[in-house]
Computed example of a mutant assay.
Amino acid sequence: MATLTTIGFDADDTLWHNERNFRLTEERFTDLLADYSDKDNLTERLLAAERRNLRLYGYGVKGFTLSMIETAIEVTEGKAPASVIGEILEAGRTMLSHPVEPLPHVEETLQALKGSFRLVLITKGDLFDQERKVAESGLGDHFDAVEIVPEKTAETYRTLFARHGDGPGRAMMVGNSLKSDVVPALDAGSHGVHVPYEITWALEHADIPAGRDRFHQVAHLGELQALLFRLV
């Protein structure tokens, strides 16, 4: 494709499972505190803590764990047992060592595209954890570059697609999050491809960017090559 030279890929819930691990841990958290509050209230309070703490802790397991501890202290009015705090810390450690499970169609799609396009992995979150997941996934060698960023904005994509390609106008970003992967890439002038995942974190919800000619959606990564052929 003469006009498209660079493809960026999100990592979590685009290349491998991630969000379901957070939701399973959240269920464990609400069970731990069931004597102090109902599940809906705990979930709401935890989400509020995550939203409040993003600017301080950023994205990822460590910030999530700190937000769970903060919520536990709040809902128990400072009386959270040490055993509960210990269980929360253990849940966080478990998440940080959870095996990486690539999603279907990922390996073959990356293999097929490598060499025809510059492939860039663009992910946000904790540096150590994201580096671990890239290494354990076995997918790192497919990429010409890996970028772990604190946030994904239009300026992020302008900068990275200029650094690793021919600018955002000749680039495509592929990911499961409309808010982080697709809309800011479109705003930067790139193509944005939405690959829905089974679960979307509440803070990543966004409306479909209807009417934007560089917006695309596929059911899974196995459909990406066909999309690229249609765009030639």
Rank of each mutant, 00 (worst) to 15 (best):
L4T: 07
L4S: 09
T5V: 15
T6M: 02
G8L: 02
F9D: 04
D12K: 02
D13K: 00
L15K: 05
H17P: 00
N18G: 02
N18E: 12
N21G: 10
N21K: 09
N21F: 13
L24I: 14
L24T: 13
L24M: 13
T25L: 08
E26P: 07
E26T: 12
L32R: 09
S37G: 11
S37M: 14
D38T: 10
D38E: 13
N41L: 13
E44A: 13
R45H: 10
L46I: 05
L47F: 11
L47H: 12
A49F: 11
R51H: 14
L54I: 15
R55I: 12
L56C: 07
L56S: 14
G58E: 04
Y59V: 05
V61G: 01
L66H: 06
S67R: 07
I69F: 11
I69P: 08
E70V: 05
T71A: 03
I73R: 15
E74I: 08
E74G: 02
V75N: 08
E77M: 14
P81M: 06
A82G: 10
S83I: 14
S83G: 03
I88S: 05
R93K: 15
L96K: 13
L96S: 13
S97P: 02
S97M: 13
P104V: 04
P104G: 08
E107A: 00
T109F: 07
L110N: 00
L110G: 01
A112F: 05
G115N: 12
G115F: 15
S116E: 13
R118G: 09
L121C: 06
I122R: 00
I122F: 03
K124H: 04
D126Q: 10
F128W: 13
Q130D: 08
E131A: 15
K133G: 02
K133D: 01
K133P: 02
K133E: 01
E136N: 12
E136M: 14
L139C: 02
G140N: 08
H142Y: 15
H142L: 09
F143A: 02
D144A: 09
D144E: 12
A145H: 05
V146L: 08
E147P: 01
I148L: 11
V149A: 08
P150E: 07
E151L: 03
T153R: 07
A154Y: 04
A154L: 03
Y157A: 03
T159K: 00
G167Q: 05
P168Q: 04
A171R: 05
M172C: 06
M173Y: 08
G175T: 04
S177V: 03
K179N: 07
V182Q: 02
V183K: 11
L186Q: 04
G189D: 07
H194A: 07
P196N: 10
Y197S: 06
I199R: 08
W201C: 11
A206R: 11
R212G: 05
D213K: 13
F215R: 06
F215E: 04
A219V: 11
H220I: 00
L221A: 04
G222K: 03
G222N: 07
G222W: 03
E223K: 15
F229S: 15
